[in-house]
């Protein structure tokens, strides 16, 4: 798993590549927490190069979404979710908790 964070004026774009499972999810969580700890609560998670995500990754997304939406200070949105990962998120009932976009520019522009 590899994570890159790009700061835009109105939001952070966090790109997660590779595989997120119980072994790598703590680092994914940390990247999301770091953004929140810097006072950044508008987050786009780019999944275009994500190959795999287990419920350990879903847990990190859920915790961050809760933190971001508190006091209406922001939101975490997903962009370019691969079909298989989208299906798993749907099975877990997570798709209604996150706005999804097809294009990073559109996602960043939504804030």
């Amino acid at each position: 798993m590899e994570i890159t964070t790009q700061e835009f004026k109105h939001c952070d774009l966090i790109k997660v590549k590779g595989r997120v499972d119980s072994a790598t999810a703590p680092d994914f969580s940390k990247a999301l927490e770091n953004a929140n700890n810097d006072g950044r609560f508008k987050i786009v998670v780019d999944m275009s190069e994500l190959e795999y995500m287990s419920s350990a990754g879903f847990r990190a997304l859920l915790a961050t979404q809760r933190n971001c939406k508190r006091y209406n200070r922001g939101e975490l949105v997903l962009v370019s979710v691969p079909a298989r990962i989208h299906e798993a998120l749907e099975l877990a009932g997570f798709t209604e908790l996150f706005k999804t976009f097809d294009d990073p520019i559109e996602a960043v522009g939504s804030f």
Binding site: S55, R59, Q65, K69, L91, G93, L97
Partner: peptide, 24 residues
């Protein structure tokens, strides 16, 4: 069994692994 209809603040993550295994 996780409540998949619960809203964000009440959503529990525990039990999700087993739930996914049974679904998959």
């Amino acid at each position: 069994q996780p409540n998949l209809k619960a809203d964000l603040s009440e959503r529990q993550i525990g039990g999700l692994g087993l739930y996914l295994m049974r679904k998959l």
